[in-house]
Design a protein around this nucleic acid. Structure first.
Lengths: 351, 351
DNA sequence: CTTGCTTTTGACACCGGTGTCTTTTACAGC
DNA sequence: GCTGTAAAAGACACCGGTGTCAAAAGCAAG
């Protein structure tokens, strides 16, 4: 109240107040706001001045109505890893901090058969200028098609390029997994187990490829009894651990496709009295909070999720501001993941 | 495209289309949409019919402009526990699923000295009908005052009532902590340690009170050397563990004010070869994913965060729909927490 | 100084709803 | 059947911006 200075009493100044003060039409003010090119420097200055003195901020609802588009970018996710989602959100917010945009979040229920209808309703109602699709929902091609149909720009986040690069942000997971597994091999591990993520997930497939690449490189191969498939949840990690570790000569190292499953395998090892990393080295993926909370702290792969959020949001903002606007400095949509070494990996015991 | 039936070609039907089809004025349609009472059953039916056949959905932007209020509820949080935040979000979405409302999320930076300015800008821009404040930011009285000033309804989430009950949703943490610690005592523990949360947090204070209540009840007290203060982060749990467990006769049980710190204490115990729960029982708080991912699985207190989200959102929706609307079935804003027993607690070894 | 063209600016309708006030309708009472 | 009153419906301005198109201004050429 005290600090506000405006034409009408006690309310936010509107475009009319600005126009009156600057002695121009409201349309001219609108042009200044929207950075129209057909305006002389002199009038622009005058209008800017009026905007400043009034402390005018355009009403987003009115703009949304007139533009037929909300100044919102939507985050659609069905990711089971909350840390990841929140980190991504953080990156997005970093990117839109100084723009007029806001973020709206929409968790989606992957299982639902009304998924596309729900999304259609949501997008038609909110009319965001763009949407970001987090994995695994980012792999849904029908959803991407729906965005196209509704004129909603979108960016798909994934561990591999899913689409035309303009629509993607991803990381080089395959390479980094290969690097991590390579380190196990360098340490002397020969019997290396693998716990895969859920079938049909591109992220799981990429990690699997990276694993096999490293093995192939060293002339090794994966024995069936050292393989288990999970669904990224802790419980399936436990199952995988039970299967792989109850053999007479279990592997000396296991690569797990995410941290939660790695934690499951480690808890089985503890139960069985198998020492980690003395008897068994473990590597996870995600660098979730779990990775540092368990004992021993888990060696894992961190993917640059926050940066990906920034990048995705920036892409949308740039496309929105100008069709031809250039996207930040680096122009590759592939951001680097990194292997993080902690205490769950060691050289195999001599036997 | 194919499935849409409306007056004008290819676009969403508007209130005018509905009015034309029903043979009434747009204002009458508006009355039906907003459940005005001054309308005959007959015309209401006719309008409803028209709405159905056209598949009309009111444009939220237009309503927002006319109402001078966005159909949004904002979630403001600075909580370090992402699982909690997402669970809360989920509850909120459950609650607003069938309403016209959407959720907008805004993480806030507690440290920032521009916090109130940022929030003012955010709220003035977005004009949500209400805001939900998650702890610890929910304890900020200035923020609550700001909401009042801007006419934004709000609900504060907390472990104790912070305010007039109309503005709060909370849980009975103190009692449940007392219950949990009581169980330790019943098992025979006498030297029980305590790791407190950050000073100045009401949640930390409530848990501390519950702890002392249980001890007092049994005629016990907390020795200084069995106490440590942390800030809810894993690292401070490690520090606490180092301090408390390096004594010649450490406690046989420790209550930690959250799971992360409990995980830290447990990792120190592992390092020192102290068996959990054989030599040392541990209880945490939050039932975060960490609780089940560590070994042994952590006994902890689960607070009904998703339910609290539902409840908070429902409160806002109800207030919004009608000032006098009744809030759901149960009318207490205190939801029950529960003690969850897992593998980190056992009777103390005889010594 | 005109003319003719391009660049700036403005008038006015419009986006799709709601608020206010007026007019019409419905119905009870005489 | 007529009047009076309350309930229902409508007309029209308005919320705060943008789009369209016409008018005004600026400027080079004739």
């Amino acid at each position: 109240m005290a600090t506000r200075t405006n034409g009408k009493s006690g309310k936010q100044p509107t475009i009319n107040d600005v126009a009156a003060l600057a002695g121009v039409s409201k349309k001219t003010v609108s042009r200044v706001i929207n950075r129209s090119e057909f305006i002389t420097e002199k009038t622009r200055k005058a209008v800017q001045q009026a905007i400043e003195t009034l402390g005018f901020v355009p009403n987003p609802q009115a703009r949304a109505l007139a533009f037929r588009r909300n100044f919102l970018i939507a985050l659609l996710h069905d990711n089971p890893n909350p840390q990841m989602v929140l980190n991504f959100q953080q990156g997005v917010l970093d990117a839109i901090k100084d723009s007029d945009l806001a973020m709206i979040v929409r968790p989606v229920d992957r299982g639902s058969d009304r998924l596309l209808d729900d999304m259609r309703t949501f997008l038609e109602k909110q009319r965001p200028i763009g949407a970001m699709l987090l994995p695994p929902i980012s792999e849904n091609d029908e959803l991407a098609a729906l965005c196209d149909e509704l004129g909603v720009r979108y960016v798909r986040i994934g561990s591999a390029l899913l689409d035309d690069a303009r629509h993607c942000v991803s990381s080089n997971d395959r390479e980094v997994v290969a690097e991590a597994v390579g380190k196990l091999i360098d340490l002397g591990h020969r019997r290396i187990g693998f716990v895969r993520g859920p079938a049909g997930f591109r992220s799981a497939a990429e990690r699997e490829k990276g694993f096999h690449e490293a093995l192939a490189q060293a002339g090794l191969s994966l024995a069936d009894e050292n393989f288990a498939a999970g669904n990224y949840r802790f419980a399936t990690g436990v199952e995988a651990g039970r299967k792989i570790l109850s053999q007479p000569a279990p592997p000396t190292a296991i690569f797990c496709s995410n941290d939660e499953m790695a934690a499951g395998v480690i808890s089985v090892a503890h139960d069985k009295g198998i020492r980690v990393p003395g008897d068994l080295s473990i590597i996870g993926f995600d660098d979730s909070p779990t990775a540092t909370h368990i004992w021993p702290a888990l060696s894992t792969v961190r993917w640059p999720i926050r940066e990906m959020g920034m990048r995705a949001a920036r892409t949308l903002v740039a496309e929105f501001l100008g069709p031809e606007a250039k996207i930040a400095e680096s122009d590759s949509p592939v951001l680097p993941s990194t292997f993080i070494e902690r205490q769950s990996v060691a050289a195999p015991a001599r036997n």
